[in-house]
Design a binder for these strands. Sequence first.
RNA 1: GGGGGUAUAGCUCAGUUGGUUAGAGCGCCUGAUUGACAUUCAGGAGGUCGAUGGUUCAAGUCCAUCUACUCCCA
Length: 907
Amino acid sequence: MAEIPKSYDPQGVEQRWYEQWLAAGCFKGKVDPSRESFAVMIPPPNVTGVLHMGHLLNNTLQDIMIRRARQEGKSALWLPGTDHAGIATQSRVEKELKQKHGKSRHDLGREKFIEVASEWRDKHGGIILSQLQKLGASCDWDRKVHTLDAGYSQAVLQAFVTLYERGYVYRGKRMVNWCPVSQTGLSDEEVIMKPTQGSLYKMRYEVAEVPGTFLEISTTRPETIPGDVAVAVHPEDSRYQHLIGKHVWRPFPRAQIPIVGDTAVEKDFGTGVLKVTPAHDRTDFDIGKRHNLAVLDVMNPDGTMNADAGPLAGLERFKARTAAAKLLEELGALVKIEPYENTVGYSERADVPIEPRLSEQWFIHYPKIEEAKRAVTSGMIKFHPERWTKTYLHWLDNIQDWCVSRQLWWGHRIPVWYRKGADRNDAKNRHVSLQPPADVANWEQDNDVLDTWASSWLWCLATIGWRKPGETTDELKHWYPTGALATGPDIIFLWVARMIIAGLELHGPEKKTLSDDEIRARIPFKRVYFNGIIRDKLGRKMSKSLGNSPEPLDLIAKFGADGLRFGLLSIAPKGQDILFDEDRVSQGRNFCNKIWNASRFRQMSGPMFDNSSIASIVKRINPAQLDDDDSAILYGIIELSKSTAHQLDEHEFTAYSQGLYSYFWGDFCDWYVEASKVRLADATQRDHCLAVQDLVLRQFLLLLHPIAPFITEELWHLLGYGKENEFIQNQNPSNGSHITDAFKASSIKIDVTKVSDVSLLREFVAEVRAAKSQANQATKRDSVITVVAKDNKAKELLSHNREKLSRLAGLLDMQFTDSPGDRPGTVCQLGTAILEQSGTIDVAGEKIRLSKELEKIEKAVTAGEAKLSNDTFVSKAPAKILEGARKQLTEAKAKRDEIVRMLKTLN
RNA sequence: GGGGGUAUAGCUCAGUUGGUUAGAGCGCCUGAUUGACAUUCAGGAGGUCGAUGGUUCAAGUCCAUCUACUCCCA
């Protein structure tokens, strides 16, 4: 075996193992019906995206789940891929076209543009995925899927056609969210509501029939005045009731428009009068419909005012707003302008205010809403943390039809052809199919493409071969439903909910309603883990413009992939937002180094024996030499295995990482290994003690492997646990039961009471160390203590462990006596330890310290006495608690007396 | 307006059926260090667990009200 270098250098180790894993096909997901399957589908990153901290966390979590599944012997698959990201990609490519060649997409034409965009995608799209390899992501790279792949596209179009045939897809002229920059409609979910500082313009419209009477109206959007076709008041508003049916003068272009009564008007908001602009506001559109009002569109698709805008024609919409205000003022119609904050919808991608705009679009009326709710409420799909269930249900309860057409070129072109020159809204003139009509010359295809999410909602189906409802394949049968999904809660509607709906409707033959068993077979995943959003130290979202996002690859280079993974995990509380702090990552790196050195120490401590199996290690443990510490550390590793299994099941990743950390660093390195140094120096005990270490290290590496795949694989081989072509991923840590089984087979008994004995010894050592530190004896190994043991059992325990204690507490000698005399001591559970003073003590300082301690302990005594003299407590509290309270009081009293005694000796 | 979340040491956070004297890492202070590791070791200071009220023998934990910050939906 090669000698282990002094400190852990991740770079070489990571690259070497990743290559070996790939070469050995470790990440391949193979259909194997004899084993339980566990699949994870990566949330496909946008081809325009760059790797950020969120990806690191999200993919670390997935890698942990998939690696643990592999260890458990499941047939595991982590499938990677990318999303074509319609709007984002198209705008990126258009921008580049403009900058480099001064051309628009129209200059190129549809076909050529898609060619250019595809080239761009091929060049940039794979970057994130390859970066994930540096993190150690164990995806089955050969299965990489892109949403515009031929097969995937076929599935997307088929889904649309099927839903059309089943009556869930319709075309209609509706108010949609229009993005003037991307010039396409958007779904409600792609609109971000932002509080925005604007102005409230108060103005007055004169009543035509009663000159000199004015209606005061407030608006935030005076530029839409030319589109006003009425004003509305509440029909029961006594202030205006009598005016309903009359008209007002619209200031520009000057025209008479009716006053209508509509209950949608809020009497208490503003003046209680609303201007009605059906073409530019959703509520107004509904009011207009109820009163048969015209729809007067005064804006162009690019956000400039059109000819109908009269004096505003040609102006950009925000310039038109100021122009309109000025115009109002000139006409004497402006009352005042006051600052006003309201919530404005912004386009998610272009980050500009959207325009409500009337246009012809395709919509999906969501199927299987009830089933989608039931899948989650009845636990067939489990959300972690559970609270997101509420958000999910609320969305389903208020669900709106989904606008799925996008006025873009980059995406899946809608598979609908219209008979040339005929009415498109008549179903007879449409051909909805994957194949064009036979006499295609007489038809023209819809120019629009589908919303990107209308392709990614099939992610769990189409990535493993779903092409048509009711048809299945071995792949689908084996992997579907997938085991878990890890994603951010920000796309719970955009993606998670829609995937559930898609699965329920499209995986299997058409059914109006589904039974529980059918739901169970159709859901895309059994669990969803919502990871938190990573923010910077100040709680701000990481963003390019703020420059507050560390470069992920730099972090990997600096701390190692394992260290980074461990650090991220330790700061990723269950679904809570995370304030990123590089210090936590260095903790992860330090931990890796600690593990490295503990293994190195093992290697230096004695020869390596047969470590190839648990049985071979256990054989080397000598039951006769099993001491208190052996029992405690072995009991600990079994308990750790149990808790780890449970925490991974429950997606308690932080608890998982912290449990490993404190066991390894605190219990194993700081105590067990230090204590075992005495035995390692003794040739008769050494091999037994090394066997215990070998067993602990082996199991620990297995438990840690999902978080820190590289270092564990490296040490697994360096310490001789695995042969050259065997990988740690094929070793099951289980819940520790295989270790207990091996113990049974070798008649090794772990005495649980030793665990508490060891904790008593640890307390004793800590107290003596503290006393030494206070006496300025520090860690020198020449202190002498005298102990008044609490009882014989304590005395026996102490003297039995004399050698270890001497080493750990730095003692030259430890004697026993029956009475402390007048010397100051320190009270532990095992008795009072008196430190022989080597120099002068700081009497005044000691007095202050002891007085402070006395005050604290007296409080505890008082509280304890009060508790125990309370009859209700004594009669009602469980025996265990009662006993504990009594013990605690006795100890507190003893400590108090000792402190009092010590204070006396100082006087 | 509706619905979440958070509030614990100087900082970042654990604390999952209520139960012994509330923990960790970082930072700070004191000390150690020739053979696992300074990416280390030992010790220490530092907390009325956001506020108030309630339930209970017992509340950081459960309930109610309030405050602050934050996210989502309208």
